[in-house]
Nucleic acid binder design. Sequence first.
DNA 1: CTAGTTGCAAAGAGTTTGCATGGCG
DNA 2: CGCCATGCAAACTCTTTGCAACTAG
Lengths: 130, 130
Amino acid sequence: MEYKTKQREILLDFFCKNEDVSFSAEQIYENLKSTGISQSAVYRNIRALEESGKVRKIAKAGSREAFYQYVDLDDCKGHLHMSCKKCGKTTHLEEKEAEILSKIFSKSNFEIDNDSTVIYGTCKDCENKK
Amino acid sequence: MEYKTKQREILLDFFCKNEDVSFSAEQIYENLKSTGISQSAVYRNIRALEESGKVRKIAKAGSREAFYQYVDLDDCKGHLHMSCKKCGKTTHLEEKEAEILSKIFSKSNFEIDNDSTVIYGTCKDCENKK
DNA sequence: CTAGTTGCAAAGAGTTTGCATGGCG
DNA sequence: CGCCATGCAAACTCTTTGCAACTAG
């Protein structure tokens, strides 16, 4: 039902290599156009990845375009994600810490859903740069 | 520097009344056009609110438009918010719990920003209804 | 009065789509 | 071979902007 094309591999490959960063469609196209991929292939395949849940769409204040970030389902499912507001890098919380966190929320009568939640803040690298 | 206009009040009022819900610019315009507000005023004022941090821009998979959601700074500043995916009700975490949480993240080299973060999950009421 | 805001309509930009061509299985 | 994906360019739609009229302070 879905063919494995050169363009599809290129795009997926690009996302995998830049797991923590979010890109606009244009940035992705700029990065990949030397391979001969077209804009429409970029758009169509981003959308496909979005629909299959492998890529997440992100809006940024002041930007008209959307940004996209890879989400490795196998690696990440169930993990609580933290996204840096400065550089966009995403990491996830270790098992143990996540459990403590769940307990804290459950005390406040709330069951946290790790897959829907993204914690925003500042990562150490960006904190140090100041 | 910034004038208080009728249109601005109408928009802010609308957001306040629908704190937990996200709307597209068009949905907002549809809701408010009976007051005589124009589309451009809607867009311009959403953007202003976005820049001042009172409103957050959200992207949804499969939608070309952006969505916007209110963030109440006065009531909520510094508080970590929890939003129920079922009923949409929003509550916030008590001081003490929030502090523990901060420490957990800081251990993972991440400084959480309570004002930008919304925790998604299920509240007790909805959990019990099942 | 003066500077900021509004409405309107037109421009602009990002994204989607139709169609002929090409490629995967 | 049949069906799906690609490239190109045109179409589309959401958002921004220029301008003259208007308002808040």
